[in-house]
């Protein structure tokens, strides 16, 4: 476990055993439909690696036997009645469309 100093505080940073490869970051960028230019990849990669190393702290947390918590809300069974409500201002739903035709959003052909 490597210790690094940030803001004069010693933060434990994991060693690079969860190393991110260039292929991986390009794959992730592809999954999230983002382009990383050649000159950007290195920077994003090192940022990501550093943050992941820090995030890796969670692997040392004393969480054996603990359930996951999804939201900080203990609510359950929040339902809505099956009653129609028309959204009146239909035109406004397409007012921000980059291009539209016959009240539909226009996009390049999808095979």
């Amino acid at each position: 476990m490597v210790k690094k100093v940030y803001n004069s505080e010693q933060i434990e940073i994991g060693d690079d055993y969860m190393k991110v490869s260039k292929e991986e970051i390009l794959h992730i960028a592809n999954l999230s439909d983002l382009i990383l230019e050649e000159n950007e990849v290195e920077k994003y990669l090192s940022n990501l690696q550093e943050i992941l190393n820090f995030a890796n702290i969670v692997s040392n947390a004393p969480v054996e036997g603990l359930d996951i918590t999804i939201g900080s809300n203990e609510a359950q069974n929040v339902f809505r009645k099956d009653e129609i409500k028309i959204f009146e201002d239909n035109k406004s739903l397409l007012q921000n469309a980059p291009t539209q035709d016959q009240n539909m959003f226009k996009i390049p052909k999808v095979l």
Binding site: D101, Q102, M104, F105, K106, I107, P108, K109, V110
Partner: peptide, 10 residues
């Protein structure tokens, strides 16, 4: 989209 050659989303 017959005319435009693209697709239309509904």
């Amino acid at each position: 989209d017959e005319f435009g050659g693209g697709s239309l989303v509904d």
